[in-house]
Amino acid sequence: MIIILKKELRLNIKAFLVWSIVVGGLGMACILLYSSMQGTMKDMADAFSNMGAFSDAFGMSTLSIATIEGYFATEVGVLHSLGGGMFAAILSIAILSKEEEGHTGEFLYSLPVSRNMVVAAKSLGVVILLVMFTALCGCLYALGFTFLGETIPVREFLIFLAGQLLLDLEIAGICLAISAISGKNRIGLGLGITLLLYMYDIIGRVVPSLKEYLFLGPYSYANASVIFSDGDISVGAYVMAACVLVAAVAFTFTYYDKRDLAS
Protein backbone atom coordinates (compact mmCIF):
# COMPACT_ATOMS: atom_id res chain seq x y z
CA MET A 1 0.00 0.00 0.00
CA ILE A 2 2.84 2.38 0.89
CA ILE A 3 4.43 1.80 -2.53
CA ILE A 4 1.24 2.71 -4.40
CA LEU A 5 0.71 5.68 -2.08
CA LYS A 6 4.25 6.96 -2.72
CA LYS A 7 3.78 6.61 -6.48
CA GLU A 8 0.49 8.53 -6.36
CA LEU A 9 2.08 11.32 -4.32
CA ARG A 10 4.98 11.50 -6.75
CA LEU A 11 2.73 11.56 -9.82
CA ASN A 12 0.58 14.34 -8.34
CA ILE A 13 3.27 16.47 -6.73
CA LYS A 14 3.43 18.91 -9.67
CA ALA A 15 -0.33 19.47 -9.67
CA PHE A 16 -0.19 19.98 -5.90
CA LEU A 17 2.57 22.59 -6.14
CA VAL A 18 0.91 24.45 -9.02
CA TRP A 19 -2.50 24.61 -7.30
CA SER A 20 -1.06 25.46 -3.88
CA ILE A 21 1.18 28.21 -5.19
CA VAL A 22 -1.51 29.66 -7.47
CA VAL A 23 -4.35 29.60 -4.91
CA GLY A 24 -2.17 30.36 -1.85
CA GLY A 25 -0.07 32.89 -3.74
CA LEU A 26 -3.11 34.71 -5.13
CA GLY A 27 -4.66 34.70 -1.66
CA MET A 28 -1.50 36.16 -0.16
CA ALA A 29 -1.33 38.77 -2.94
CA CYS A 30 -4.96 39.67 -2.20
CA ILE A 31 -4.12 40.15 1.50
CA LEU A 32 -1.11 42.32 0.63
CA LEU A 33 -3.34 44.51 -1.57
CA TYR A 34 -5.45 45.33 1.47
CA SER A 35 -3.11 48.09 2.72
CA SER A 36 -3.17 49.90 -0.65
CA MET A 37 -6.97 49.65 -0.84
CA GLN A 38 -7.64 50.45 2.81
CA GLY A 39 -8.20 54.17 2.18
CA THR A 40 -10.93 53.72 -0.41
CA MET A 41 -12.41 50.68 1.28
CA LYS A 42 -14.71 52.52 3.71
CA ASP A 43 -17.02 53.95 1.05
CA MET A 44 -16.91 50.71 -0.91
CA ALA A 45 -17.81 48.69 2.20
CA ASP A 46 -20.84 50.89 2.84
CA ALA A 47 -21.98 50.49 -0.75
CA PHE A 48 -21.44 46.72 -0.78
CA SER A 49 -23.28 46.19 2.52
CA ASN A 50 -26.42 47.88 1.14
CA MET A 51 -26.87 45.84 -2.01
CA GLY A 52 -29.61 43.58 -0.67
CA ALA A 53 -29.46 39.99 -1.88
CA PHE A 54 -26.03 40.48 -3.43
CA SER A 55 -24.63 41.56 -0.06
CA ASP A 56 -26.30 38.56 1.63
CA ALA A 57 -24.95 36.14 -0.96
CA PHE A 58 -21.36 37.21 -0.47
CA GLY A 59 -21.61 37.83 3.27
CA MET A 60 -21.04 41.58 2.99
CA SER A 61 -24.19 42.44 4.90
CA THR A 62 -22.74 40.92 8.09
CA LEU A 63 -19.06 41.65 7.55
CA SER A 64 -17.36 44.87 6.47
CA ILE A 65 -14.74 44.53 3.79
CA ALA A 66 -13.08 47.61 5.27
CA THR A 67 -11.69 45.40 8.06
CA ILE A 68 -8.92 42.87 7.38
CA GLU A 69 -11.15 40.00 8.60
CA GLY A 70 -14.00 41.04 6.34
CA TYR A 71 -11.69 41.63 3.42
CA PHE A 72 -10.03 38.21 3.92
CA ALA A 73 -13.38 36.41 4.26
CA THR A 74 -15.02 37.94 1.19
CA GLU A 75 -12.01 37.94 -1.14
CA VAL A 76 -9.64 35.16 -0.09
CA GLY A 77 -12.45 33.01 1.31
CA VAL A 78 -14.16 32.76 -2.07
CA LEU A 79 -10.87 32.28 -3.91
CA HIS A 80 -9.75 29.45 -1.63
CA SER A 81 -13.08 27.65 -1.45
CA LEU A 82 -13.44 27.62 -5.24
CA GLY A 83 -9.77 26.90 -5.94
CA GLY A 84 -9.57 24.19 -3.30
CA GLY A 85 -12.82 22.59 -4.45
CA MET A 86 -11.58 22.52 -8.04
CA PHE A 87 -8.23 21.03 -7.04
CA ALA A 88 -9.98 18.35 -4.96
CA ALA A 89 -12.28 17.53 -7.89
CA ILE A 90 -9.49 17.34 -10.48
CA LEU A 91 -7.30 15.25 -8.21
CA SER A 92 -9.97 12.80 -7.18
CA ILE A 93 -12.10 12.31 -10.26
CA ALA A 94 -9.21 10.77 -12.21
CA ILE A 95 -7.54 8.90 -9.37
CA LEU A 96 -9.06 5.49 -10.22
CA SER A 97 -10.31 6.01 -13.76
CA LYS A 98 -6.89 7.09 -15.05
CA GLU A 99 -5.71 3.47 -14.77
CA GLU A 100 -8.30 2.41 -17.33
CA GLU A 101 -8.12 5.58 -19.43
CA GLY A 102 -4.31 5.28 -19.63
CA HIS A 103 -4.45 1.46 -20.05
CA THR A 104 -2.17 1.03 -17.03
CA GLY A 105 -4.80 -0.97 -15.12
CA GLU A 106 -3.67 -4.28 -16.65
CA PHE A 107 -0.18 -3.66 -15.30
CA LEU A 108 -1.27 -2.49 -11.83
CA TYR A 109 -4.00 -5.06 -11.25
CA SER A 110 -1.85 -7.97 -12.45
CA LEU A 111 0.39 -7.27 -9.45
CA PRO A 112 -0.50 -9.02 -6.17
CA VAL A 113 -2.59 -6.26 -4.65
CA SER A 114 -6.34 -6.21 -4.08
CA ARG A 115 -8.53 -3.52 -5.59
CA ASN A 116 -9.52 -2.41 -2.08
CA MET A 117 -5.87 -1.86 -1.27
CA VAL A 118 -5.44 0.22 -4.42
CA VAL A 119 -8.51 2.31 -3.56
CA ALA A 120 -7.25 2.77 0.03
CA ALA A 121 -3.77 3.84 -1.11
CA LYS A 122 -5.08 6.24 -3.74
CA SER A 123 -7.70 7.72 -1.38
CA LEU A 124 -5.07 8.24 1.29
CA GLY A 125 -2.92 9.97 -1.33
CA VAL A 126 -5.77 12.39 -2.09
CA VAL A 127 -6.28 13.10 1.63
CA ILE A 128 -2.57 13.79 2.18
CA LEU A 129 -2.38 16.12 -0.82
CA LEU A 130 -5.47 18.04 0.30
CA VAL A 131 -4.12 18.41 3.84
CA MET A 132 -0.81 19.66 2.42
CA PHE A 133 -2.67 22.02 0.06
CA THR A 134 -4.68 23.51 2.93
CA ALA A 135 -1.61 23.79 5.16
CA LEU A 136 0.53 25.46 2.49
CA CYS A 137 -2.22 27.91 1.52
CA GLY A 138 -2.83 28.63 5.23
CA CYS A 139 0.88 29.37 5.71
CA LEU A 140 0.88 31.76 2.74
CA TYR A 141 -2.20 33.59 4.06
CA ALA A 142 -0.62 33.82 7.52
CA LEU A 143 2.51 35.20 5.88
CA GLY A 144 0.34 37.86 4.20
CA PHE A 145 -1.13 38.90 7.54
CA THR A 146 2.37 39.05 9.06
CA PHE A 147 3.76 41.19 6.22
CA LEU A 148 0.90 43.66 6.77
CA GLY A 149 1.55 43.68 10.53
CA GLU A 150 -2.04 42.63 11.15
CA THR A 151 -3.09 40.23 13.90
CA ILE A 152 -4.44 36.94 12.66
CA PRO A 153 -7.81 36.05 14.18
CA VAL A 154 -6.45 32.61 15.07
CA ARG A 155 -9.69 30.88 16.10
CA GLU A 156 -11.67 31.98 13.03
CA PHE A 157 -8.68 31.37 10.77
CA LEU A 158 -8.30 27.77 11.97
CA ILE A 159 -12.05 27.10 11.76
CA PHE A 160 -11.95 28.51 8.22
CA LEU A 161 -9.06 26.22 7.19
CA ALA A 162 -10.68 23.18 8.84
CA GLY A 163 -13.94 23.95 7.04
CA GLN A 164 -12.11 24.30 3.74
CA LEU A 165 -10.37 20.98 4.26
CA LEU A 166 -13.68 19.26 5.02
CA LEU A 167 -15.22 20.90 1.94
CA ASP A 168 -12.34 19.65 -0.22
CA LEU A 169 -12.62 16.15 1.27
CA GLU A 170 -16.37 16.06 0.62
CA ILE A 171 -15.95 17.08 -3.01
CA ALA A 172 -13.06 14.61 -3.35
CA GLY A 173 -15.28 11.86 -1.90
CA ILE A 174 -18.06 12.54 -4.41
CA CYS A 175 -15.54 12.62 -7.27
CA LEU A 176 -13.85 9.44 -6.04
CA ALA A 177 -17.18 7.61 -6.32
CA ILE A 178 -17.59 8.92 -9.88
CA SER A 179 -14.05 7.82 -10.67
CA ALA A 180 -14.91 4.30 -9.47
CA ILE A 181 -17.88 4.10 -11.85
CA SER A 182 -16.28 5.71 -14.87
CA GLY A 183 -13.53 4.19 -16.94
CA LYS A 184 -12.71 7.62 -18.32
CA ASN A 185 -11.43 10.84 -16.82
CA ARG A 186 -14.36 13.18 -16.14
CA ILE A 187 -12.52 16.33 -15.13
CA GLY A 188 -15.22 18.55 -16.64
CA LEU A 189 -17.85 16.80 -14.54
CA GLY A 190 -15.75 17.25 -11.38
CA LEU A 191 -15.33 20.96 -12.00
CA GLY A 192 -19.03 21.24 -12.83
CA ILE A 193 -19.96 19.61 -9.52
CA THR A 194 -17.75 22.06 -7.62
CA LEU A 195 -19.27 25.09 -9.35
CA LEU A 196 -22.78 23.71 -8.94
CA LEU A 197 -22.28 23.25 -5.19
CA TYR A 198 -20.90 26.78 -4.94
CA MET A 199 -23.83 28.20 -6.89
CA TYR A 200 -26.23 26.24 -4.70
CA ASP A 201 -24.82 28.03 -1.66
CA ILE A 202 -24.99 31.46 -3.33
CA ILE A 203 -28.58 30.93 -4.47
CA GLY A 204 -29.50 29.48 -1.06
CA ARG A 205 -28.35 32.67 0.63
CA VAL A 206 -30.39 34.87 -1.72
CA VAL A 207 -33.64 32.91 -1.94
CA PRO A 208 -35.33 32.95 1.51
CA SER A 209 -37.18 29.65 1.04
CA LEU A 210 -33.92 27.84 0.31
CA LYS A 211 -32.07 29.07 3.39
CA GLU A 212 -33.15 26.16 5.58
CA TYR A 213 -31.74 23.71 3.00
CA LEU A 214 -28.32 25.37 2.83
CA PHE A 215 -26.87 22.68 5.10
CA LEU A 216 -27.17 20.15 2.25
CA GLY A 217 -24.27 21.76 0.39
CA PRO A 218 -20.66 21.78 1.59
CA TYR A 219 -20.16 25.50 0.98
CA SER A 220 -22.56 26.25 3.86
CA TYR A 221 -20.12 25.21 6.59
CA ALA A 222 -17.07 26.46 4.68
CA ASN A 223 -18.44 29.96 4.12
CA ALA A 224 -15.73 32.34 5.31
CA SER A 225 -18.11 35.27 5.79
CA VAL A 226 -20.19 33.28 8.27
CA ILE A 227 -17.11 31.99 10.08
CA PHE A 228 -15.45 35.42 10.39
CA SER A 229 -18.66 37.16 11.48
CA ASP A 230 -19.11 34.58 14.27
CA GLY A 231 -22.27 33.38 12.63
CA ASP A 232 -23.70 30.00 13.54
CA ILE A 233 -22.86 27.11 11.28
CA SER A 234 -25.53 24.48 11.40
CA VAL A 235 -24.43 21.21 13.01
CA GLY A 236 -26.59 19.58 10.36
CA ALA A 237 -24.13 20.81 7.71
CA TYR A 238 -21.25 18.95 9.39
CA VAL A 239 -23.39 15.83 9.86
CA MET A 240 -24.41 16.02 6.21
CA ALA A 241 -20.77 16.35 5.13
CA ALA A 242 -19.79 13.32 7.22
CA CYS A 243 -22.68 11.27 5.80
CA VAL A 244 -21.86 12.20 2.19
CA LEU A 245 -18.18 11.45 2.71
CA VAL A 246 -18.75 8.08 4.37
CA ALA A 247 -21.39 7.06 1.82
CA ALA A 248 -19.19 8.08 -1.14
CA VAL A 249 -16.14 6.22 0.17
CA ALA A 250 -18.16 3.12 1.10
CA PHE A 251 -19.75 3.11 -2.36
CA THR A 252 -16.34 3.45 -3.99
CA PHE A 253 -14.89 0.45 -2.16
CA THR A 254 -17.95 -1.72 -2.73
CA TYR A 255 -18.59 -0.86 -6.36
CA TYR A 256 -14.99 -0.78 -7.57
CA ASP A 257 -14.29 -4.20 -6.10
CA LYS A 258 -17.16 -5.75 -8.05
CA ARG A 259 -16.95 -4.15 -11.46
CA ASP A 260 -15.19 -5.33 -14.61
CA LEU A 261 -12.05 -3.43 -15.46
CA ALA A 262 -11.63 -2.21 -19.02
CA SER A 263 -8.47 -3.28 -20.84
Binding site: L11, H103, E106, F107, S114
Partner: peptide, 21 residues
Protein backbone atom coordinates in the same frame (compact mmCIF):
# COMPACT_ATOMS: atom_id res chain seq x y z
CA UNK B 1 -7.39 -16.35 -3.43
CA UNK B 2 -7.01 -13.63 -6.05
CA UNK B 3 -3.99 -11.88 -4.49
CA UNK B 4 -2.20 -15.14 -3.63
CA UNK B 5 -2.60 -16.28 -7.23
CA UNK B 6 -1.18 -13.04 -8.61
CA UNK B 7 1.96 -13.53 -6.52
CA UNK B 8 2.69 -16.65 -8.59
CA UNK B 9 1.67 -15.28 -11.98
CA UNK B 10 3.56 -13.22 -14.53
CA UNK B 11 1.20 -11.52 -16.97
CA UNK B 12 2.00 -9.67 -20.14
CA UNK B 13 -1.00 -7.90 -21.72
CA UNK B 14 -1.31 -7.44 -25.46
CA UNK B 15 -0.97 -3.68 -25.05
CA UNK B 16 1.93 -2.84 -22.77
CA UNK B 17 1.15 0.46 -21.06
CA UNK B 18 2.92 1.99 -18.09
CA UNK B 19 3.09 5.37 -16.37
CA UNK B 20 4.58 7.67 -19.00
CA UNK B 21 6.57 9.90 -16.67
Amino acid sequence: DHVSILKEVGYMPSEAWFYGS
